[in-house]
Design a protein around this nucleic acid. Structure first.
Length: 557
RNA sequence: GCCCUUGUAGUUCAACGGAUAGAACUUCGCACCCCUAACGCGAAAAUCCAAGUUCGAUUCUUGGCAAGGGCACCA
């Protein structure tokens, strides 16, 4: 069992890569780039190397000939069969024993199955979700939260210490608008987060239609930054607390917990100070009473950091935030997840930050995600035609409870369906949201994965004994050859910050399991012991995979 | 006008420059309820257009066309 502990198979792909590097060196093609991949067609084997194509030109031979030179000198420590395709791929098919060992490993390791060490000893901060108090969380925040949570878990799974951060705009025009409207309607004691966002919509309408209201709101905005009107600040602080309580209720349902909350009220002052200091250094300029950054020389454009009224914009606050994060937590890497509409702004912020604090800028990565738009038209929190996070969750729970009277399970299924919809596609691409089409409970969907797991676990609860028979059947089941790739898939998803890679894999895995389930009887079969092990290996893989996506795993469905 | 992102079956999404472009929904057919059918099997159906780079391009480059977003005091 030392094999299981050392986890040799978890590094199978890496081993093949290294063996290929050495083999290439031996045939005089050192350093050519190549890939080791899982062939789309399983009959081609478990791993494929394309090095022969790349080396062929340099060696003046055909890819097929080069592949034939490489294949015999590949030194891989597990049993396998190496074949060369006519086109020039080197295909590696693992032996029956090797696959059985991988299944044993997946079955025995439990929670540890799939853990990696790529990010060992790294400290990473991930900022995501970023809802604004005085507005409600809407489905766009759901997208940021779902991707951010999964990315955090994937990074942590590779050995990093992850700090989760949530940054909230608790000052600024949107807050002034909401407070203005609340005061106007003599609301001294708003009760729900819905009251606040309703007020925001109203305040925004007034801001755009009435010059007097605009002046009042602008004044209120400045007063909030100054902060010496105690009645105002108390009202503000109460509203903020109310909003955050609402956020945390949603976070709990979603399975997220933030280690740090950062607020714009904390970053405004230092952000402005740092920007002002940057004027003398020639980083920023004054223009028409505002402080701006001219990005033209770097192919960017000009953006205002401090307004002519002396209030900081998003950009100045972002600079302040970078320093505040640094002050609070030591990190090696800082990831900021936002909607892609902020790409342009973030480039400029990072360009400025590079001149102010090059080390912070160097370790900061902006990861934009696509936007969620409604098939019925544009969503705008200013106009109030948004689908809020809680609305959507309740809507989907309603649908999932048709098949599940148990409210906890209905909720788990609903969250699974919502998160799957978001995580199935590349983080950068947007979603045109249509509840009927986007949120499926059948086919490629969250419940499909959850259901496959439930069925496997059920078998395991019946399997009180280890079952009869111990030898593995001659040919491996398709599911076995999929299970062994799990650690590699997870590592790649973490490296590319792309949970969709894992989602696609788990969907394929669930399909293979359902096929196995439909065609093979586990309990009471001649190969029961081995099939139970396969079942456990699948259940571990799916459980750990869903955990990494942040998708709940219901006990039954 | 400039910049960014995206164009793949009827629809919603995959495909680290590789093998016959994968799924799901829909449609049609089959199976059939024996460890849970939110399941399984089969069929039909797609790379926006044009050049270029490459042994090989959905992927890279350039130019069109189309959609979305951003471009000084919102975030």
């Amino acid at each position: 069992m030392s094999f299981v502990e050392s986890g040799t198979l978890a590094r199978m792909e890496e081993q093949i890569r290294q063996a290929s590097v050495l083999a290439l060196k031996d045939i005089g093609a050192e350093g050519v780039p190549f890939t080791v991949e899982r062939p789309a067609e399983s009959t081609h084997g478990d791993y494929a190397i394309n090095a022969a194509f790349v080396a062929a030109k340099q060696l003046g031979k055909s890819p097929h000939e080069v592949a034939k030179d490489i294949a015999p000198i590949l030194k891989i420590s597990v049993h396998e069969d190496i074949k060369v395709s006519e086109t020039g791929f080197i295909n590696i098919t693992l032996s029956r024993e090797t696959i059985a060992l991988a299944v044993a490993e997946a079955s025995a390791q439990g929670d540890e199955w799939g853990k990696g060490t790529v990010n060992a000893n790294q400290r990473v901060m991930v900022e995501y979700t970023d809802p604004n108090p005085f507005k409600e969380m809407h489905i766009g925040h759901l997208m940021s939260n779902t991707i951010g949570e999964s990315v955090s878990r994937l990074i942590a799974n590779e050995g990093a210490t992850v700090t989760r951060a949530c940054y909230s705009g608790d000052v600024g025009p949107h807050v002034a608008k909401a407070i203005w409207a609340l005061r106007k309607s003599c609301t001294t004691d708003p009760q729900t987060a819905g009251d606040l966002s309703g007020a925001y919509v109203e305040g925004n309408r007034a801001y755009e239609t009435s010059p007097e209201a605009k002046a009042e709101i602008d004044a209120l905005n400045q007063a909030l930054y100054v902060g010496d009107d105690l009645t105002l600040m108390e009202f503000w602080s109460k509203g903020r607390a109310l909003a955050i309580e609402a956020f945390e209720r949603v976070f709990k349902i979603l399975g997220t917990h933030f280690d740090y909350y950062f607020f714009e009220s904390e970053t405004a002052e230092s952000g402005m100070r740092i920007v002002r200091d940057g004027i003398e250094k020639g980083i920023f300029e004054e223009s028409e009473g505002a402080v701006i950054y001219k990005g033209e020389k770097e192919g960017l454009h000009t953006l205002v950091f401090i307004t002519s009224r002396g209030t900081p914009t998003y950009e100045a606050k972002e600079i302040g935030l970078a320093f505040l994060k640094e002050e609070r937590v030591q990190t090696d890497r800082s990831i900021v997840l936002t909607g892609m509409e902020q790409i342009g702004h973030f480039k400029i912020v990072l360009a400025a930050l590079k001149k102010i604090a090059p080390l912070i800028a160097a370790k900061t990565t902006h990861v934009p995600h696509g936007l969620l738009s409604l098939s019925t038209g544009k969503m705008s929190s200013r106009e109030g035609n948004v689908i809020t996070a809680t609305e959507l969750i309740h809507e989907v729970i309603l649908r999932s409870s048709e098949k599940n009277p148990d409210p906890l399970i209905a909720e788990q299924v609903a969250i699974g369906a919502i998160k799957y919809m978001i995580l199935r596609q590349a983080p950068g691409s947007g979603i045109i949201f249509d509840e009927e089409k986007s949120l499926s409970l059948e086919g490629d969907s969250g419940p499909y994965l959850q259901y496959a797991l439930v069925r496997a676990r059920k078998i395991l609860t019946y399997a009180a004994t280890g079952g009869e028979g111990s030898d593995e059947p001659g040919a491996p089941y398709a599911i076995e050859r999929l299970i062994l790739h799990f650690p590699e898939v997870v590592a790649r998803a973490a490296r590319e910050l792309a949970p969709n890679i894992l989602t696609t894999y788990l969907t394929e895995l669930a399909a293979a399991w359902n096929n196995f389930y439909a065609t093979e009887q586990v309990l009471g079969s001649p190969e029961e012991a081995y099939k139970q092990r396969v079942t456990r290996a699948f259940a571990n893989t799916m459980t750990n995979g869903l955990k990494l996506l942040g998708i709940p795993t219901p006990e039954r469905m």
